[in-house]
Amino acid sequence: MTTSLPHLTHALFTQPTPSILLPIALGTGIGYSTRPTQTKKTYLSMKQPPLRPPPWVFGPVWTALYGLMGYAAHRAYTLSLPPSLSSHPPTPTPTSPIPLLYTLQLSLNLAWMPLFFTLRRPGLALLDIGALVGLNSYLAYRYFAIDSLAGWCVVPYLAWLGFATYLNAGVGYLNRWDISESTLATREALGKRE
């Protein structure tokens, strides 16, 4: 098992197609696992800060960002390998920290939606996204040191994460850090009476 992990990592990151498609597939899977209809209803029932986008914006934006992050990881990983390992090595060695850093940031990214929309914990989601911004800032720094195109591919992701952090903090604050189903239903009922 331990010898196959470097091979799997190498196969994933040295080919652009799986590097791009994996985060898109995982992000799509998480999106659908959190029940999109319920997520949209929750999103529309919360008090929102100014500049919140309509719900339909998130799917296309995240698809593009996941694709960019996958391509950036592919370029950074491939260009960080010694020339003898960049094609099809018989026994790749995990010399690059890129796969670990990338996997950590992707895990934090994928955890955000269940934290926010399934568990309805905007405070935990804010901690998650704060760690995500920090890790991706470091990852962008590492990418720029290896390849400027890889670094620039992460910039839109960082910008969107900054905006998402604002939205997360705004929703948390405006809803008193409680977006539970019962609280939102009570607020909605009270709003209809007024």
Rank of each mutant, 00 (worst) to 15 (best):
L115F: 14
V57M: 13
G70R: 05
V61F: 09
A125M: 08
T63H: 03
A64P: 04
V154L: 08
L124R: 15
G162F: 12
A185W: 15
S137C: 11
I129S: 10
E181W: 13
G67R: 14
T63D: 10
A189I: 09
G27D: 05
S180M: 07
R120L: 01
R52G: 13
T14P: 02
W177D: 09
S84H: 15
G123P: 12
P92F: 06
G170V: 02
P114D: 01
S84N: 13
G70C: 01
S4F: 02
T186L: 10
P90M: 13
G27C: 05
E181A: 03
P92V: 05
G27Q: 03
I20P: 01
D128L: 06
L135H: 09
Y173A: 03
R75F: 07
L126E: 08
E181R: 10
L174D: 04
S96V: 00
A73W: 10
T63C: 10
L184A: 08
L5C: 08
G162V: 11
I129W: 04
T78G: 05
E188A: 13
G191T: 03
T17G: 07
L184D: 13
L127T: 11
A145L: 11
A169L: 06
V57G: 02
H88D: 01
H7F: 04
P83I: 06
W56F: 13
N168T: 04
T118H: 13
G134Y: 15
A169H: 01
